[in-house]
Design a protein around this nucleic acid. Structure first.
Lengths: 203, 203
DNA sequence: CCATATAAAAAGAATGTCCGTTTTTCTTGT
DNA sequence: ACAAGAAAAACGGACATTCTTTTTATATGG
């Protein structure tokens, strides 16, 4: 019974996704034709449709791939250091990743997905769940900081989390438009926020 | 000479843009067909192509329209109140506008434009110039604040401006995805940033 | 260990729909 | 009445997808 080894099959799939990502980053989902993906991958129509039933399916798979990547990026290093330090570590990791050249392609696709989420519920679920993970992590950190007295107890943890995530996403936007972006400067700006979190000193 | 009055002509143009905006907000640029716009507007293909030479042209005009709207929204009220208050006023205006239901349609189109900017240089120019106006305004305010001793002189004004704009844009993203968004909570979070700006007290 | 049969996988041509745009015809304002 | 504006039909091309043919990998029999 001649069936190709699963690892080979998986490799082909990745090959196709890789080619598709290149095309999508360059031209967007809807300007990219299957022919483009064919050309980029060096494969054929029949082959691609063996792995993805439809172009939409390919986009969905693209979303999954991205989702997985970001989930690992923004999850807090589980060390039980103090919350402020951990927040800063998360920001640092995200912002330096943003600065890297090779993350650009990925982030261009991410922006496409953000827009796609407006009209495709499945993509939207991917995108929002991709947000909720870091939201929850940051919220938990802030709460811990409050318990430790490092962060003003009057502040709403989830509002803070939303603000930080908004910042990160906004930076990502500026980055893909090739606006001047320096992780160092962005991190300094993030420190301003951290400074604003500390409880007012009673005088 | 039977030519329609310019005001009528302008009204038609707006009518078309209005219909297009509805379609674009609903389905995105590339899922919207000219036929959709025809149906939505109740006009005809010939008519639309009399006002816009091409679909791309329609998208470009859409971008201009949005650009104009946002330019007025984020420009600082020119009063010479203290910079911190003015920053807060800008944030307040933007965030409450974001909360309004009728701004949603517009912002959905904005997100499409953000993605479109990746592959269309004209749109990209619109988008980035739409950013640079508030960036400059906020930078100037921060500088004034520093001169007045209200803001820590060690901070880089344009980094701060970029951070704030990133925040605003990120909030806009969350908003169009129907994530829970409350202008009040967002403004409180913004106040954290403002608090972080004040110079460290010498003790 | 090689040869071969076989079914999956890939290639490449073919198909039919849909869409942007143009052209032609009709309507309307002045 | 007449030219411009608008409607509606028509066109050509491109695209996603399918279908047919060819190739390839593997399991089995010698």
């Amino acid at each position: 019974m001649p069936k190709v080894k699963p690892e080979t099959s998986q490799a082909r799939r990745d090959e196709i996704l890789e080619a598709a990502e290149t095309c999508f980053a360059r031209q967007g989902f809807h300007q990219t034709t299957i022919r483009d993906v064919i050309q980029q991958s060096g494969l054929s129509a029949g082959c691609i449709y063996g792995y993805f039933s439809t172009k939409e399916d390919l986009i969905r798979a693209m979303g999954e791939r991205r989702h997985a990547r970001d989930a690992t990026l923004l999850s807090p290093s589980d060390k039980s250091a103090d919350p402020i330090t951990l927040l800063r570590a998360i920001a640092r990791e995200y912002l330096t990743d943003l600065e890297k050249e090779d993350g650009l392609r990925t982030r261009r696709v991410a922006l496409q997905l953000w827009a796609e989420a407006l009209r495709n519920d499945e993509i939207k679920a991917q995108v929002t769940s991709g947000i909720h993970v870091p939201l929850a992590a940051i919220t938990a950190l802030v709460q811990r900081g409050q318990r430790l007295g490092l962060i003003d107890k009057k502040l709403n943890p989830s509002s803070i989390a939303r603000m930080m995530v908004a910042m990160f996403q906004g930076y990502a936007l500026q980055r893909v438009w090739n606006e001047p972006f320096k992780a160092k400067a962005a991190l300094e700006a993030f420190d301003i926020v951290l400074r604003g979190l500390v409880p007012a000193r009673v005088s």
